[in-house]
């Protein structure tokens, strides 16, 4: 395990050495640019129209979850029809079942020492 830790440190040293050199190269190249961007180049545009900054971000729920919700919509629908009743105590039963399953897996894997 100690050997792996040493190798991780070596890899990190290598990684950050390259990163620092490239970052300095980036700063040098940037300083040598023939002109600095000004005016309209610095404002946000979308499809040729100016765009307010507050609208230029997307709700995080639509970033990641939306694709999966669409992809597994039929599976979600089937699960909902089969298991969802809308009664809180039913939900609690499912939570106990889930907890029991987790405990079973933990015990069968050797348990907590």
């Amino acid at each position: 395990m100690m050997q792996l830790l040493i190798e991780v440190l070596k890899a990190s040293a290598s990684m950050f050495t390259v990163a620092i050199i490239l970052y300095l190269l980036y700063l040098y190249a940037r300083s040598k640019a023939p002109r600095k961007p000004i005016g309209d180049k610095l404002s946000i545009y979308a499809c040729g129209e100016s765009y307010p900054e507050r609208k230029a971000s997307v709700a995080d729920v639509n970033l990641f979850v939306a694709v999966w919700k669409n992809l597994f919509r039929s599976l979600y629908g089937r699960l909902r029809e089969g298991f969802h009743t809308g009664i809180l105590s039913d939900w609690l039963v499912w939570m106990y079942v889930f907890l029991a399953l987790m405990l079973f897996i933990l015990v069968s894997a050797g348990g907590v020492p």
Binding site: S14, M15, F16, T17, V18, A19, I20, L22, Y23, Y26, A29, R30, K32, A33, P34, R35, K36, P37, K41, L42, S43, I44, E53, A56
Partner: peptide
């Protein structure tokens, strides 16, 4: 060696740092 256009509200040096660390 072209100009580095950073639009209003964009991450500037953080993006360059992320990219160089990933190259490393």
């Amino acid at each position: 060696f072209k100009e580095d256009v950073v639009v209003k509200g964009a991450g500037d040096k953080l993006t360059a740092g992320l990219l160089t660390v990933s190259i490393g």
